[in-house]
Amino acid sequence: GEIEFWFAGIKIFVIIAFILLGIAILFGIMPSNNSSSYYLHNYSDFVPNGWKAVFSTLLVVIFSYGGSELIGLTITETKDAEKVLPGVVKGVMWRVVLFYTLPIFIICGLIPWDKIDANASPFVQVFETAGLQGASHVMNFILLTAVLSAANSGIYGCTRMLHSLSQSGDAPKSLSYVNKQGVPVYSLAFSVLFLLLGTYLVYLYPEKAFSYLLAIPGFTVSLIWISICLAQLKLRPQYKEKPYFKLWGFPYLTLFAACTLIISFIVFLIDSANRLSSIVCVAFVLVMVILSFFKRNTKPTSLEVTNDTN
């Protein structure tokens, strides 16, 4: 948590500086190398490459937002969760608008969408329009901290999820072991092992591994978010006590989110560029589903549990 605080602090500082610099350039307060700042309303078509392109790019968007659902995992380690978490969730929504949507708005205002260099960061391009030629080195450092931040939160989420599965009997019992500090060390070691494996794959296949490894978490996060939406639609009306967290627009907003995610998920599966990743992900899910039936059949009945207890 302390490491994530500093990683996030670095990213937030740079994004705020970027927003202030971009606004200054857009409104002519700061001179730049950009000859025009009217790109926001010079587009001939709102969706120039069609809606299929929009849903295809949602995979990268979902990957980028992946991890926001970790807020739910922290409920078991949060004091006064009923009071704290609603404020945290609402704060996340405002931060998404501030730290994601606003920078994209500025980028689209300063650089035509078809002039953005695919081999360079658009943040760097904006900094360079302001004459900051050394911005690429600074942004490389920021991107490195962002990657480490993603790995840090990923390790936390994976470790806690393995620990939870182990406690419920859906993963090896040893993964539920925690040390004196309350850290599930075996789950942590298991998570780090796969992190090192992914790093090794990138080392062996630097040109292809990243796109494959990017697709897999995008697939996973999509599946998780769809499951969360469907679980909300089914379970929330059945609660005996009204939840302390008010869900705005329920069930219509939840249904809209589920439909959008499902469409994006289908587009991802049928996209030829994701064929290998789709086969791997679907095969893994099928194996898990098949194993779940065997697990369900091996669980003791209530009579067996009673006899064992006696």
Rank of each mutant, 00 (worst) to 15 (best):
K79E: 12
A81H: 01
E82Q: 14
L58N: 02
I75K: 04
V88R: 01
P48G: 09
I71E: 07
G66N: 02
D80T: 03
T74M: 15
T57S: 13
L70E: 15
T76C: 11
V54W: 15
V60Q: 07
V47G: 04
P48K: 07
L73H: 03
S68P: 09
S68T: 13
N49D: 13
P86E: 13
V60C: 05
L73R: 02
G87F: 10
A53N: 08
V84H: 04
V89A: 08
V61S: 07
T74W: 09
T78A: 05
G67F: 14
I75V: 15
L59T: 02
F55K: 01
V60D: 13
T78F: 10
K83C: 01
A81T: 00
E82D: 13
E82C: 01
E82Y: 04
A81P: 04
E77C: 05
E69N: 10
L85G: 00
G50K: 06
G87W: 12
V61I: 14
F63D: 00
G72K: 12
K52F: 08
V61N: 04
A81K: 01
L85I: 13
N49H: 12
K83M: 04
V88I: 10
L58F: 11
G87R: 06
T74H: 02
G72D: 14
T57C: 11
F63E: 04
I71C: 04
T74V: 11
G72H: 09
I71Y: 06
F63C: 03
G50P: 06
D80L: 13
S68M: 15
G67T: 07
Y65M: 10
V61R: 02
Y65N: 01
V84M: 10
I75Y: 07
G50I: 09
I75F: 11
P48C: 13
S68D: 14
I62P: 00
Y65I: 09
W51D: 03
E69T: 07
E69P: 05
P48R: 13
S64W: 10
L58I: 07
S64P: 08
V54D: 05
T74E: 11
I75C: 06
V60T: 08
L70K: 07
T78C: 05
G66K: 03
L58M: 15
S64Q: 07
E77R: 08
T74S: 10
V54L: 14
G67N: 10
A81S: 06
E77H: 10
K52R: 07
S64K: 02
K83A: 01
V61C: 11
E69L: 15
E82I: 09
I71D: 03
D80A: 12
G72N: 06
L59Q: 05
E82T: 01
V89P: 00
V47M: 12
V88N: 00
I71N: 01
V89F: 09
P86C: 12
I62K: 00
P86N: 06
T76G: 05
E69V: 14
S64L: 12
F55G: 00
L73Y: 10
V61P: 03
E77S: 10
V84G: 00
V60N: 09
S68E: 14
G87Q: 08
G50F: 10
